[in-house]
Protein backbone atom coordinates (compact mmCIF):
# COMPACT_ATOMS: atom_id res chain seq x y z
CA UNK A 1 0.00 0.00 0.00
CA UNK A 2 1.30 3.43 -0.96
CA UNK A 3 -0.12 6.61 0.51
CA UNK A 4 -0.11 9.66 -1.72
CA UNK A 5 -1.00 13.00 -0.13
CA UNK A 6 -2.20 15.82 -2.35
CA UNK A 7 -0.84 18.82 -0.57
CA UNK A 8 -0.11 22.51 -0.96
CA UNK A 9 -0.12 25.29 1.62
CA UNK A 10 -2.23 27.31 -0.80
CA UNK A 11 -5.80 26.58 -1.70
CA UNK A 12 -7.41 26.44 -5.15
CA UNK A 13 -4.39 24.86 -6.86
CA UNK A 14 -6.12 21.71 -8.13
CA UNK A 15 -5.48 19.32 -5.25
CA UNK A 16 -8.94 17.79 -5.21
CA UNK A 17 -9.22 17.49 -9.01
CA UNK A 18 -5.85 15.74 -9.08
CA UNK A 19 -6.65 13.41 -6.17
CA UNK A 20 -9.97 12.41 -7.73
CA UNK A 21 -8.69 11.98 -11.28
CA UNK A 22 -5.51 10.10 -10.38
CA UNK A 23 -7.42 7.83 -8.02
CA UNK A 24 -9.86 7.14 -10.84
CA UNK A 25 -7.00 6.21 -13.19
CA UNK A 26 -5.38 3.98 -10.56
CA UNK A 27 -8.70 2.18 -9.96
CA UNK A 28 -9.31 1.80 -13.70
CA UNK A 29 -6.04 -0.05 -14.08
CA UNK A 30 -7.09 -2.50 -11.40
CA UNK A 31 -5.47 -1.02 -8.27
CA UNK A 32 -7.67 -1.08 -5.18
CA UNK A 33 -7.87 2.59 -4.41
CA UNK A 34 -9.19 4.81 -1.64
CA UNK A 35 -9.59 8.59 -1.49
CA UNK A 36 -9.69 10.11 1.99
CA UNK A 37 -11.30 13.52 1.92
CA UNK A 38 -9.59 15.32 4.81
CA UNK A 39 -10.77 18.76 3.76
CA UNK A 40 -13.82 19.97 5.77
CA UNK A 41 -15.08 21.64 2.58
CA UNK A 42 -15.71 18.09 1.30
CA UNK A 43 -14.99 18.77 -2.36
CA UNK A 44 -13.91 15.25 -3.30
CA UNK A 45 -16.91 13.81 -1.43
CA UNK A 46 -19.05 16.15 -3.55
CA UNK A 47 -17.40 14.95 -6.77
CA UNK A 48 -18.28 11.37 -5.85
CA UNK A 49 -21.84 12.29 -4.77
CA UNK A 50 -21.19 11.05 -1.26
CA UNK A 51 -22.61 12.95 1.70
CA UNK A 52 -19.82 14.73 3.63
CA UNK A 53 -20.72 13.06 6.90
CA UNK A 54 -18.70 10.84 9.21
CA UNK A 55 -20.38 9.17 12.17
CA UNK A 56 -18.88 10.46 15.40
CA UNK A 57 -17.00 13.25 13.60
CA UNK A 58 -13.32 14.03 13.93
CA UNK A 59 -13.19 13.31 17.67
CA UNK A 60 -14.23 9.66 17.53
CA UNK A 61 -12.28 9.15 14.33
CA UNK A 62 -8.98 10.36 15.74
CA UNK A 63 -9.62 8.57 19.04
CA UNK A 64 -9.81 5.36 16.98
CA UNK A 65 -13.26 4.58 18.37
CA UNK A 66 -14.51 3.81 14.89
CA UNK A 67 -12.56 1.69 12.46
CA UNK A 68 -11.86 3.60 9.27
CA UNK A 69 -13.05 0.59 7.27
CA UNK A 70 -16.58 1.02 8.64
CA UNK A 71 -16.74 4.62 7.46
CA UNK A 72 -15.71 3.91 3.88
CA UNK A 73 -18.19 4.29 1.00
CA UNK A 74 -17.99 2.67 -2.41
CA UNK A 75 -17.98 5.19 -5.26
CA UNK A 76 -19.75 4.59 -8.56
CA UNK A 77 -16.48 3.28 -10.00
CA UNK A 78 -14.98 -0.19 -9.75
CA UNK A 79 -12.07 -0.52 -7.27
CA UNK A 80 -12.53 3.03 -6.03
CA UNK A 81 -13.74 3.86 -2.51
CA UNK A 82 -14.04 7.07 -0.55
CA UNK A 83 -13.66 8.02 3.07
CA UNK A 84 -15.87 11.10 3.15
CA UNK A 85 -15.19 14.44 4.75
CA UNK A 86 -17.07 15.84 7.73
CA UNK A 87 -17.57 19.45 8.70
CA UNK A 88 -15.98 18.65 12.07
CA UNK A 89 -12.66 18.09 10.24
CA UNK A 90 -12.15 21.85 10.63
CA UNK A 91 -11.17 20.97 14.22
CA UNK A 92 -8.81 18.12 13.33
CA UNK A 93 -5.84 20.15 14.53
CA UNK A 94 -7.33 20.64 17.98
CA UNK A 95 -8.39 17.03 18.25
CA UNK A 96 -4.93 15.84 17.25
CA UNK A 97 -3.27 18.24 19.66
CA UNK A 98 -5.15 16.68 22.57
CA UNK A 99 -3.55 13.28 21.87
CA UNK A 100 -0.22 11.77 22.66
CA UNK A 101 2.16 11.61 19.68
CA UNK A 102 -0.29 13.57 17.47
CA UNK A 103 1.83 13.37 14.32
CA UNK A 104 1.85 9.54 14.42
CA UNK A 105 -1.91 9.35 14.71
CA UNK A 106 -2.96 9.19 11.03
CA UNK A 107 -0.32 6.59 10.28
CA UNK A 108 -1.69 4.39 13.02
CA UNK A 109 -5.27 4.83 11.84
CA UNK A 110 -4.37 3.95 8.24
CA UNK A 111 -2.35 0.86 9.13
CA UNK A 112 -5.29 -1.61 9.22
CA UNK A 113 -6.21 -0.67 5.64
CA UNK A 114 -2.88 -1.82 4.21
CA UNK A 115 -4.23 -5.20 3.05
CA UNK A 116 -7.34 -3.73 1.48
CA UNK A 117 -5.87 -1.04 -0.75
CA UNK A 118 -2.97 -0.60 -3.15
CA UNK A 119 -3.20 3.21 -3.13
CA UNK A 120 -4.66 5.72 -0.70
CA UNK A 121 -4.96 9.30 -1.86
CA UNK A 122 -5.22 11.89 0.91
CA UNK A 123 -6.99 15.04 -0.23
CA UNK A 124 -5.56 17.54 2.28
CA UNK A 125 -6.86 20.92 3.42
CA UNK A 126 -4.70 23.92 2.46
CA UNK A 127 -2.59 25.08 5.40
CA UNK A 128 0.45 24.06 7.36
CA UNK A 129 -0.48 22.75 10.74
CA UNK A 130 -0.29 19.79 13.09
CA UNK A 131 -2.58 17.90 10.69
CA UNK A 132 -0.14 18.55 7.82
CA UNK A 133 2.66 17.12 9.93
CA UNK A 134 0.59 14.04 10.70
CA UNK A 135 -0.08 13.70 6.97
CA UNK A 136 3.63 14.01 6.16
CA UNK A 137 4.45 11.30 8.72
CA UNK A 138 1.93 8.87 7.29
CA UNK A 139 2.53 9.39 3.56
CA UNK A 140 4.96 7.85 1.11
CA UNK A 141 4.53 10.59 -1.48
CA UNK A 142 3.66 14.26 -1.11
CA UNK A 143 2.24 15.24 -4.46
CA UNK A 144 2.16 18.99 -4.67
CA UNK A 145 0.33 20.90 -7.43
CA UNK A 146 2.07 24.18 -8.25
CA UNK A 147 0.39 26.98 -10.21
CA UNK A 148 3.05 28.68 -12.35
CA UNK A 149 3.17 32.01 -10.48
CA UNK A 150 6.00 33.77 -8.67
CA UNK A 151 4.44 33.13 -5.29
CA UNK A 152 4.38 29.40 -5.96
CA UNK A 153 8.17 29.32 -6.10
CA UNK A 154 8.29 30.60 -2.54
CA UNK A 155 5.70 28.07 -1.39
CA UNK A 156 7.59 25.15 -2.91
CA UNK A 157 10.84 26.26 -1.32
CA UNK A 158 9.13 26.69 2.05
CA UNK A 159 7.77 23.18 1.77
CA UNK A 160 11.15 21.68 0.86
CA UNK A 161 12.74 23.48 3.79
CA UNK A 162 10.08 22.21 6.14
CA UNK A 163 10.49 18.60 5.00
CA UNK A 164 14.25 18.84 5.38
CA UNK A 165 14.04 20.36 8.86
CA UNK A 166 11.48 17.81 10.01
CA UNK A 167 13.84 15.01 8.89
CA UNK A 168 11.10 13.29 6.92
CA UNK A 169 13.48 10.93 5.15
CA UNK A 170 10.84 8.49 3.93
CA UNK A 171 8.69 11.15 2.33
CA UNK A 172 9.12 11.72 -1.39
CA UNK A 173 8.06 15.20 -2.50
CA UNK A 174 6.81 15.27 -6.09
CA UNK A 175 5.84 18.74 -7.37
CA UNK A 176 4.09 19.28 -10.70
CA UNK A 177 2.52 22.18 -12.55
CA UNK A 178 -1.19 22.53 -12.20
CA UNK A 179 -3.75 24.83 -13.84
CA UNK A 180 -1.08 25.84 -16.34
CA UNK A 181 -2.27 28.23 -18.99
CA UNK A 182 0.05 28.16 -21.99
CA UNK A 183 -1.61 31.28 -23.42
CA UNK A 184 -0.21 33.28 -20.51
CA UNK A 185 3.40 34.27 -21.14
CA UNK A 186 4.05 34.50 -17.43
CA UNK A 187 3.01 30.87 -16.93
CA UNK A 188 5.29 29.77 -19.75
CA UNK A 189 8.27 31.70 -18.44
CA UNK A 190 7.86 30.57 -14.86
CA UNK A 191 7.44 26.95 -15.92
CA UNK A 192 10.70 27.13 -17.80
CA UNK A 193 12.70 28.77 -15.01
CA UNK A 194 11.14 26.68 -12.24
CA UNK A 195 11.83 23.46 -14.09
CA UNK A 196 15.49 24.39 -14.34
CA UNK A 197 15.72 25.26 -10.68
CA UNK A 198 13.72 22.25 -9.56
CA UNK A 199 14.63 19.26 -11.73
CA UNK A 200 12.42 17.06 -9.54
CA UNK A 201 9.38 18.79 -11.08
CA UNK A 202 7.37 16.32 -13.19
CA UNK A 203 7.46 16.72 -16.98
CA UNK A 204 3.68 16.69 -17.30
CA UNK A 205 1.71 19.84 -16.55
CA UNK A 206 -2.03 19.73 -15.94
CA UNK A 207 -3.64 22.42 -18.09
CA UNK A 208 -6.14 24.99 -16.97
CA UNK A 209 -9.14 23.59 -18.84
CA UNK A 210 -12.87 23.96 -18.91
CA UNK A 211 -13.49 20.20 -19.01
CA UNK A 212 -11.74 19.85 -15.63
CA UNK A 213 -13.87 22.67 -14.22
CA UNK A 214 -16.95 20.79 -15.40
CA UNK A 215 -16.25 18.10 -12.77
CA UNK A 216 -18.29 20.22 -10.36
CA UNK A 217 -21.31 20.03 -12.63
CA UNK A 218 -20.94 16.39 -13.61
CA UNK A 219 -20.02 15.35 -10.07
CA UNK A 220 -17.64 12.62 -11.22
CA UNK A 221 -13.99 12.19 -12.25
CA UNK A 222 -13.03 13.55 -15.64
CA UNK A 223 -12.79 10.03 -17.12
CA UNK A 224 -16.43 9.42 -16.13
CA UNK A 225 -17.75 11.89 -18.71
CA UNK A 226 -14.87 12.60 -21.14
CA UNK A 227 -13.31 9.90 -23.24
CA UNK A 228 -10.30 11.64 -24.66
CA UNK A 229 -9.13 15.22 -24.30
CA UNK A 230 -5.95 17.19 -23.62
CA UNK A 231 -6.83 17.08 -19.91
CA UNK A 232 -7.44 13.32 -19.72
CA UNK A 233 -4.18 12.72 -21.58
CA UNK A 234 -2.34 15.04 -19.17
CA UNK A 235 -3.65 13.13 -16.13
CA UNK A 236 -2.71 9.82 -17.76
CA UNK A 237 0.83 11.04 -18.42
CA UNK A 238 1.10 12.47 -14.91
CA UNK A 239 -0.04 9.17 -13.34
CA UNK A 240 2.45 7.22 -15.43
CA UNK A 241 5.29 9.51 -14.26
CA UNK A 242 4.22 9.09 -10.65
CA UNK A 243 3.94 5.30 -10.98
CA UNK A 244 7.47 5.17 -12.40
CA UNK A 245 8.77 7.05 -9.36
CA UNK A 246 6.73 4.97 -6.89
CA UNK A 247 8.12 1.75 -8.38
CA UNK A 248 11.59 2.94 -7.38
CA UNK A 249 10.62 3.78 -3.79
Amino acid sequence: MKIIALYNIKGGVGKTATAVNLAYLAAQSGYRTLVWDLDPQGASSYYFRVKPKVKGGSKELIAGERELDNLIKATDFENLDLLPADFSFRNLDLVLDARKKPTQRLKKLLQPLSDSYDFIFLDCPPNISLLSEAIFESSDVLLSPIIPTTLSLRTLEQLKKFIKESKLKDLQLIPFFSMADRRKNMHKEIMETLSEKHPDMLQTAIPYASDIERMGLERMPLGGYTNKSRSTEAYQALWQEILDIIKLL
Partner: peptide
Protein backbone atom coordinates in the same frame (compact mmCIF):
# COMPACT_ATOMS: atom_id res chain seq x y z
CA UNK B 1 -31.43 -14.48 -12.72
CA UNK B 2 -31.22 -11.22 -10.90
CA UNK B 3 -28.29 -10.41 -8.66
CA UNK B 4 -28.01 -7.45 -6.34
CA UNK B 5 -24.50 -6.27 -5.66
CA UNK B 6 -24.13 -4.42 -2.34
CA UNK B 7 -21.79 -1.46 -2.23
CA UNK B 8 -19.54 -0.69 0.72
CA UNK B 9 -21.04 1.86 3.06
CA UNK B 10 -24.56 1.48 1.63
Amino acid sequence: RISLQPLKGY
